[in-house]
């Protein structure tokens, strides 16, 4: 077992770098319409930023920032957003996941409503992927105990 390890350089660089990594992840999610990117890739970048925090600090500190309960709730929140958009389309009279029906509640024409629906889907996928990456990392690295990681 490795004792608690602290390095001022690593922690400072990580603290400075983290907001930019997370901003880049949000950019990749939101700009997936016009450039390579989308929910899966942006979600993985957001998850990797949290994993960097876990590596530079330790798991207890990381779990103080984002608890396990919140992480599991994010896991299902993304899925609820995804299927919720599908059900909204169903309620508005179209098929499941037929986003053009969203123009009844959004101030856009049916073709742009499809673009908006895709953005909502990507956000849902991004939240789920981020939470799943964090959950898998935390469980695997501490073999399920969430006490000390990387031992």
């Amino acid at each position: 077992m490795i004792a608690h390890f602290e390095d001022v350089i690593i922690q400072t660089v990580c603290r400075i770098l983290l907001p930019f990594i997370q901003l880049y992840g949000l950019y990749v999610i939101a700009h997936g319409h016009h450039s390579p990117g989308g929910g899966f890739q942006g979600g993985v970048i957001l998850g990797a930023s949290f994993i960097l925090f876990c590596v530079a600090y330790d798991i207890k500190e990381a779990k103080r920032r984002m608890s396990e309960k919140l992480d599991t709730m994010f896991c299902s929140l993304g899925l609820i957003i995804y299927s919720g958009i599908g059900i909204i389309c169903l309620v508005l009279g179209g098929n499941y996941l037929n986003y053009s029906r969203l123009h009844h509640i959004l101030p856009v024409n049916p073709i742009d409503a499809r673009s908006m629906g895709i953005l909502g889907i990507e956000i849902g996928v991004g939240i789920t992927v981020m939470a799943v990456m964090i959950s898998l990392f935390l469980n695997l690295v501490s073999s399920g105990e969430h006490e000390e990681g990387l031992q």
């Binding site: 989308g38 899966f40 992927v129 799943v132 990456m133 898998l136």
Partner: peptide, 9 residues
């Protein structure tokens, strides 16, 4: 793209 996600899972 979807297969890579299945791979990670």
């Amino acid at each position: 793209l979807t297969t890579i996600v299945v791979m990670v899972s």
